[in-house]
């Protein structure tokens, strides 16, 4: 469906959808933990705005509640909890190095194109005006996954996970005008509980490996690996 057939409000939904996609890209590009949390908050606010607009255009009153819930949880409460955690863990100013940032961005663009092709047949089944944005919501999910893959910090991985949830919620809103209220409430509180549990986990991880770099979880030995190899060599020679 061509954009000129849409009303101005529907065009505004498309604009916000494009901004949600952009916020996913900016999440991928942020190297500071604090800025990625802020970018996540912006994404939540944009998804809430899109939901409210869909509610207005489609005249679906229950979506206003979802929009309010999204705004309260994803744009305010969860970012606030994460922000407090990061300050408490004293990693607020830490800069995370991303390996090959330009390559990650290019991969992200490829993922967007991929989700467009995957979503094409799905879009043909839908009659809603917002069906073009299904591909966008799918790419938000995939970009969140890419963020979890490329990052080593536990906190940014959680942010990536939450942004995947944003994408799923957005997909539900634009493709079927939202899930049943019970499901939505359940998911919302699940996410909130997940944040709290992640918070506890951060402290546990840091206590046991003295860092939030999850790559260090791969090491089994307490000692340095190279030292262990050297020791083994010495042991082999003495035999």
């Amino acid at each position: 469906m061509n954009i000129t057939h849409f009303t101005l409000q529907e065009q505004a939904i498309l604009i916000i959808a494009a901004l949600v996609l952009f916020s996913s890209f900016s999440l991928l590009a942020q190297t500071r933990i604090i800025s990625s949390i802020h970018a996540f908050a912006w994404q939540g606010a944009l998804v809430a705005a899109a939901t409210a607009l869909v509610a207005f255009v489609a005249n679906q009153h229950h979506l206003y509640i979802s929009a309010l819930l999204t705004l309260a949880l994803k744009a305010i409460l969860i970012p606030w909890i994460l922000h407090r955690l990061v300050v408490k863990l004293e990693i607020a100013r830490e800069v995370e190095t991303v390996v090959h940032p330009a390559l990650v961005m290019l991969g992200a663009a490829v993922l967007v194109a991929f989700s467009y092709y995957v979503a094409l047949p799905v879009e043909k089944l839908s009659l809603l005006a917002t069906r073009n944005t299904i591909a966008i919501s799918m790419s938000v999910v995939l970009l969140g996954m890419l963020m979890m893959v490329t990052r080593r910090q536990a906190v940014t991985q959680v942010v990536g996970f939450m942004s995947m949830e944003n994408g799923l919620f957005f997909a539900a809103v634009v493709s079927t005008h939202g899930m049943p209220m019970v499901v939505e409430l359940g998911v919302a509180f699940d996410v909130l509980v997940a944040t709290v549990i992640f918070g506890v986990f951060f402290f546990q991880i840091r206590e046991s490996i003295e860092s939030l770099d999850v790559d260090r979880l791969n090491r089994l030995a307490e000692t340095d690996e190279s030292a262990a190899v050297a020791e083994a060599d010495v042991a082999g020679e003495s035999e």
């Binding site: 469906m1 061509n2 954009i3 663009a109 967007v112 194109a113 467009y116 879009e123 073009n132």
Partner: peptide, 22 residues
């Protein structure tokens, strides 16, 4: 300038995905 390129690329992608559509 990478940001500029990314914005332009997103512009093209959103043209294909959102404006032409299925």
């Amino acid at each position: 300038l990478n940001l500029a390129f990314l914005l332009a690329l997103l512009g093209m992608l959103s043209h294909v995905i959102l404006e032409v559509g299925a």
